Amino acid sequence: MEIAMLDETNFAAAIDGTVLPALESCRTDGYMEPAHEIYSGHPLPALRHPNGTSALGKLHYVTYDVAEFQKLGVPGASRQFHGAVVLSHGFSEFADKYRELAWYFLLAGFSVCILEHRGHGYSPRDVDDKDIVYIDDWHRYVADFAKFAAQVGRPAAKGCRLALFAHSMGGGIATALLERYPKLIDRAVLSSPMIAPDTHIPNWLAAGTTGFLSDLGLAKAKAPGMHNFEPEVNWKDNPGASVARVQWFHDLRMNDSHYQTTAAANMWVKQAVRLSHAILQDKMVRRIQTPILMFQAGNDLWVLNVAENEFKEKLDRAGGRIEMDRIPKSAHEIFSMPNAVYAPYLKRILRYLQSSEKVTVLA
């Protein structure tokens, strides 16, 4: 197969004129009942809406069927079926942000399944403020995503490989999944995973402060330093990124209030740090059976490189199978970088997830 990267100089037109019509031809939107128990069988705590009523709701997801996509006969696309990819997105993200990456996976012969994590996109929220991301317990993210992988991703793989792509917060969720459901995923790619968040202060202090505020009844309030959605792109958060891609991501957020989550709640910060501690437990790292390819962004402002290094060292010592590619000049979202960075990153991912067909990526 020979995959051509989208032209950055005419990016929006390429997305609108080529990618979106193709994706619509093979897209399905679905809703899933959330999980009710964690991997050990213990029940998750009950959730309450701010008005006091029960608040679970159904989680939104999007799937793209490669069999339908292949009927389009896109030049350069694989004619083989390589299985399915379940995608775990990052903090304040949503399924439609990954349409370009879904396009490339489809070209490579994979169906794509994207869950919108609780508190994101069109999935249920447990806080009234549209800007705030809240979670009561990090186990809920993991249990929901495991259920999604088993009930949506595995059938989509049709007996072939079930692969995983996970970014940032989604990478932290996915890593905890690999530890707690070690036979669920066949091969995994972790891109700038949140093994530990970068809270810009010591994480023990961030967890202590937000935990204290949560105990005072402010669990769903914005954590210190957080802000509401802003109509202008903050380019300082995207060093070296593709202007066209970042602007396209931001335009999606501008055009749909469901995509304007921005601020972490106090409880989200506390749970993010707890998730980090849980991931890095030696006894949990030893449970991982899935081969992992991990990417590290050298200019990462949102997760700690040192924690990614620690995780790899622990998994190496445990005899796990992990490879790490460091991209020194990349921002946190490697898939937001210019084609010169994105193309080799994409080629590495596709060659890692399937080895039966030669992959060429043209920048």
Rank of each mutant, 00 (worst) to 15 (best):
G298D: 08
Q70A: 03
I279F: 07
S25W: 00
Y259D: 03
M267W: 04
G73F: 02
T199H: 03
V341K: 02
H200Y: 01
A4R: 11
V142I: 14
F311M: 12
G121F: 08
M267P: 04
Y259H: 10
A55D: 04
R348Q: 09
A297P: 08
G225S: 04
A241D: 11
S111V: 10
A263L: 00
M169Q: 15
L184C: 12
L304I: 08
V189W: 07
L59C: 07
Y39T: 14
A278I: 07
K97P: 02
A14Q: 15
V359K: 01
G172Q: 03
E230M: 12
K97L: 05
A219H: 03
A55V: 03
D131F: 09
T262L: 06
R326Y: 02
T175P: 10
W302S: 11
M284W: 13
L218Y: 11
E2P: 00
A13Y: 02
A176I: 09
H82Y: 00
M267A: 11
G172S: 05
Y181E: 05
P202V: 11
H117Y: 04
D65K: 01
A272S: 15
K312C: 07
A46R: 15
I334N: 02
R286P: 09
F148T: 12
K58C: 14
L44Y: 00
A343E: 06
T18D: 07
D129I: 07
A143V: 00
L44V: 01
